[in-house]
Structure formats: structure tokens, C-alpha cells
Design a protein around this nucleic acid. Structure first.
Ligand code: ZN
Ligand code: ZN
Ligand code: ZN
Ligand code: ZN
Lengths: 168, 168
DNA sequence: TCCATATTGTTATCTTATAACATATCACTT
DNA sequence: AAGTGATATGTTATAAGATAACAATATGGA
């Protein structure tokens, strides 16, 4: 599994590699884990991989509908549940939206704890690791006797490209 | 403004002080800021201060209704908007719920950046400062050229009291 | 008192998400 | 190849969370 250098998605980059790499990784993961990347699931992942923008479930559903792949909410929510559980997609709590994981072949692999940087203007989402922050977080929790099961860390602001303009 | 020692709300404590202190602080804040703590707003804050549990907007609305203070969603959402904006209440993104700020007279004062520890079992929410974590977070953002406007940091897990049982 | 502003009341609607159950598909055994 | 249990999808209905829009009222200063 080739370890790619971490891409800063806010910079110009070969996005076709994000898309292809993401799909390849997903197929490989499902292969090894005995999971089924069915047509709807694959298409939802593909839709999310087509940009680094957060999409709402109903945005995705509208596209599925155009593709003739279903128009009822459970279709998209079930696919998203599968993708989130297998770590291929992340849910953004602040936006009630979803974005494809873009840690392809990262050393950390799936199941990492991500931190998100969410641009309020263009809805692009960058994903970085919580590794560096995790230590101090854990210390706070320990001080209160709290047992951490999962973490939500989302930074809201403006990406480099959106900083020039009028501002939100 | 008396600086109280930070309370660990997961430990047994004199909760009446949380309630009274919270209301007193709110009145003082509104006084100095020229804000109006109207009956509905005060009641919503009081409802939230009565426990350290996160409450959904409709939970609060049901109580307001019993009090004869309104039964339409905008009533509670408008009060919550006011309270969140003035820093008296925080919104928990992971839960789509709200909890009173319990940093009464803290050195940091209002407008601090909070981090939350949310018990999935009893829905109690402890609030600590993001201060210690903020540095490393900011560094990640700077590395990507991202301009941070606000932060969502929520730790999901189990409080000390809920750790004994069967587990969620 | 009169006015501008802020707040509340009310109706309707929108967005996000899930429950429940019928049908179809898959993977595996016989 | 046919049977079988588990998994996945189709479909209807509804729950849960949030806001738009406008009318009515209260507040506080000129
Ligand atoms: Zn890309
Ligand atoms: Zn942007
Ligand atoms: Zn208390
Ligand atoms: Zn608890």
C-alpha cells in the first residue's frame, strides 16, 4: 500500500488522484474486510470523492435520483451508515453533512481520529490527524475521570482561497 | 467578580450554587451589556441550569409549555439564540442540544472557547477550557493556511459515575 | 405622547433522520 | 441446482430539529 505524501486539499492538486485513489482504496478495504461495496455504496462514495466539499444527505440523494439509483431517504442514509462505519466517509457534526475520507494509504490507516477544517464559504473540508492534539485532550479528560470513546474536533473558518473576498 | 474554583460537575457538588450563580451572572451580564433577560429567556436558562444535562430544543419547549410560556418552536429557538450569542448557553453539535455555560465568574469570562465532555449514558456535559489544546490546533490550521473562526471540540464517552455499569 | 426598535405570537414549511415491513439478492450448504 | 439464513434494497410513513414570514405587542427614548 503506497504511502502518499499528505495532500493539502486547499492547494491546487491532481484531484483525479484523490478520486481514483479513494475508490481503489475502498475496493481494497472491502476486499480484505469481507465488506460489500454495492453499487449504491460505491456511487455515494464516488459522489463525495468528486470534490472535497461536505454534502448533505439530501444533496447526495438528489444525485442518486438523477442516476436512477433511488429517491427515498433510507437509500442514502443506509449507504452513508455503511461508509461511515467502515471509515471511508466522515460525518461533519457541525454541518450535518458528509465528506469522503482522504487519508488514502496514510500510515495511520482507517479508524484514525480525524480533525476537520471546514470552510464556511466554499464548504471544502480538509482533514488532518488529531494525533498531535490528542495528548492534551486526553489529559483533560483523565483529570475529570472521563472515559473518552470518540472525539469531535472541527475547526470552522475560511480556507486560503476564500480569505481574499468579502468574508462571510 | 468572585473567581470560584473550577467545579468538576461529575463529582458531588453544591448544585444550588451552579443554579443561583448562573442566574446571578446572567442578570449581571445583561445589566452591563445592555441586554434584556426577558422572562422566556430567563426561564430557558433556568431550565438548563437545573441540571448539567444537555437538553434538546423541544425538551425545553415542552417545559415552557407546561409553564404556559409558549408552545411554538420559535419561542424556544429565539431564546436559545439569544442565550448562545451572549455566551450563557452552549450548543452541543454532536447532540443537537444545549447546555448552560458553567464557567461562572471564571477568569476567562464569556466568549471563552470551551471543550465539552459528553456522557452518552446520562447526557451530563462537563465544560473545560480549550486553552491547553488551542496551541496545537492553531498550529495545524496555520500549516494549511486556514483562518480559524471558531472551534467545535466535543469528547464523547462515559462520565465517572456511568463507567461502572453495563456500558452503552 | 409618539416613534423606532426589539420582542413575542402564530402559521406554515423546511431540513435532517429513522421506524417498520415487504421484497430481493447474496453466500453458503446440501 | 435448490434450499436457507443473512444481508441489502424498495417503499411508505413519520419523527426530530430548525427556520421563514408576518402580525401583534411591548419597550424605551425623543
Ligand atoms: Zn483532491
Ligand atoms: Zn473555502
Ligand atoms: Zn452543578
Ligand atoms: Zn454519565
Amino acid at each position: 500500500m503506497p504511502v502518499q505524501p499528505a495532500t493539502n486539499i486547499f492547494e491546487k492538486h491532481n484531484h483525479r488522484r484523490c478520486l481514483k485513489g479513494g475508490m481503489d482504496e475502498a475496493r481494497a478495504l472491502c476486499q480484505t474486510q469481507g465488506l460489500r461495496l454495492t453499487p449504491v455504496r460505491a456511487r455515494v462514495l464516488e459522489i463525495l470523492l468528486e470534490s472535497h466539499k461536505a454534502l448533505g444527505a439530501y444533496d447526495i440523494l438528489a444525485i442518486l435520483d438523477m442516476d436512477g439509483m433511488g429517491r427515498q431517504p433510507p437509500v442514502v442514509y443506509r449507504a452513508l451508515e455503511f461508509l461511515v462505519q467502515s471509515g471511508l466517509v466522515h460525518r461533519l457534526e457541525k454541518l450535518n453533512a458528509f465528506a469522503a475520507c482522504c487519508h488514502q494509504g496514510s500510515a495511520e490507516g482507517r479508524g484514525h481520529e480525524p480533525m476537520f477544517l471546514i470552510c464556511t464559504q466554499c464548504r471544502q473540508v480538509a482533514e488532518t490527524s488529531l494525533k498531535e492534539v490528542e495528548g492534551s485532550i486526553e489529559k483533560c479528560a483523565a483529570a475529570l475521570g472521563f472515559e473518552v470513546q470518540s472525539r469531535v474536533v472541527e475547526l470552522i473558518g475560511r480556507c486560503p482561497a476564500c480569505q481574499g473576498g468579502a468574508g462571510l
